[in-house]
Simulated assay, not measured.
Amino acid sequence: MLIEGHPERIKTQLGMRCHVFLNLVDELRRVGLSGSRHVSLEQLAIFKFLYTAVAGLSV
């Protein structure tokens, strides 16, 4: 799993450090989002970040 791997790997893959990513997941939970049987909140956050990067949207 990406989060449990080497600290630099998540930074390389997502462009952010692990603690920043975990803060993003916590913020999504705080505003009422949660995972489902098929998609975890972590997967949703990764998708959102990758979509933003590929689409060239500002973060």
Rank of each mutant, 00 (worst) to 15 (best):
A53D: 13
V20M: 12
V59Q: 13
L33Q: 08
L14C: 00
F47D: 04
G5I: 11
F47W: 10
M1C: 15
G15C: 04
R9E: 15
Y51T: 00
L14A: 04
L44K: 02
R29V: 08
L22W: 05
V31E: 05
S36R: 04
L22M: 13
M16A: 03
S36T: 01
N23E: 12
R17I: 15
Q43R: 02
I3S: 01
A55G: 05
E8N: 13
S40N: 09
M16Q: 11
V20P: 01
L50C: 10
L2W: 08
M16N: 06
I3F: 06
S36G: 04
R17C: 14
Y51P: 00
F47M: 08
E42V: 01
V20F: 10
G32W: 01
L57D: 11
V39S: 09
S36W: 06
L28N: 01
R29D: 04
T12S: 09
L24K: 02
L28I: 00
A55R: 06
A45C: 11
E42S: 02
A55C: 11
C18M: 10
L50K: 14
M16Y: 14
L33F: 09
G35H: 04
V20Y: 04
V54A: 14
V54F: 05
V54G: 01
N23T: 15
L24C: 07
L44A: 07
L2K: 02
L14M: 05
H38C: 10
G35M: 03
G15V: 06
V31G: 01
S40T: 03
V25Y: 07
L44G: 08
R37A: 08
L57V: 14
E4H: 02
T12H: 14
E27D: 12
R17G: 15
D26N: 12
H38A: 11
F49Q: 14
S40P: 03
G35D: 02
F47K: 02
F49A: 06
S34T: 06
F49M: 12
A45W: 07
N23H: 13
L50T: 09
L41C: 01
H38Y: 11
R17M: 14
R17F: 06
L22G: 05
V59W: 09
T12N: 12
G56A: 07
G32K: 03
V54R: 10
L28Y: 07
F47R: 03
I10G: 00
T12G: 07
L2G: 06
K48I: 05
L2C: 04
S34A: 10
T12M: 13
G15Y: 03
Q43F: 02
